[in-house]
Amino acid sequence: MEKAAQSESDKLIIKGIEFSSRLWVGTGKYRNFEEMAQALEASGTDVVTVSVRRVDLKRTAESLLNYIDLKKYKILPNTAGCYTVEDALRYSRLGREAGLSDLVKLEVIGDEKTLFPDVIGLLKATEILAKEGFIVFPYTNDDPIMAKRLLDAGAACVMPLGAPIGSGLGIRNPYNIKIILETVAQRYSCPVVVDAGVGSASDAAIAMELGCDAVLINTGIAGAKDPIAMASAMKHAVMAGRLSYGAGRISKKLYATASSPLEGMLL
């Protein structure tokens, strides 16, 4: 069991990069950039995901990066919207060329309706990008065998989905996440980050209580009625979940065990 959370030694380090927050936040879907900036601040995060897209030639839109302090936040470019290995490689390379990060949140999407990953394509892309020196964070299924294959291919961590992207369904298969943590992640000393599906603070706490190293949330925050309040809720849930994991919960029992002594009761 790791030391209690919140201590300095509980920092998450991946490939030498130190992450001060275990809550990672997406930058999509906010009503405007001001709201996004305030939500990021409230979340306490230090890593934000972004997407690679064409520059608006009419320059009607403001630049996202005007609202993100690069001294404060690490940039994690994603390959969202890529359905083939070729596209995922192209977007990854463009994201790195932009010059802010060797990290990539690698997505190879298999299906438009579910946005589930095409794990075969994901594995191929992971192998190629890891060889090119990328620090690859693959968005994958909650499949322990695939997690192992991705790590063998050079992934720096695995990011199993809790539920479909944007669904808010929470951690649908905590047992698989637990198996990934207990078998693959432990053997490879590799972080596990739940990516996608977290809809509320309790979902985030469950992921952390399972022993996950971090959670990545976008829609769960940006889509809330009050994204700034939800960002704060997620921050506290991630910290509470991490502490709870470190503290070691009691085992579950079918019957009651009294908390108050029987001794000294009136006859």
Binding site: V52, G99, A196
Partner: peptide, 27 residues
């Protein structure tokens, strides 16, 4: 991909297809 250090020397010619990308909000 054209590397940043080559922007001022990389020549463009008729019918070239150019993509210029940046970061936008995303998850």
């Amino acid at each position: 991909i054209v590397s940043k250090k080559d922007y001022s020397t990389f020549p463009l010619k008729e019918e070239d297809q150019v993509e210029i990308v940046n970061f936008v909000g995303g998850g």
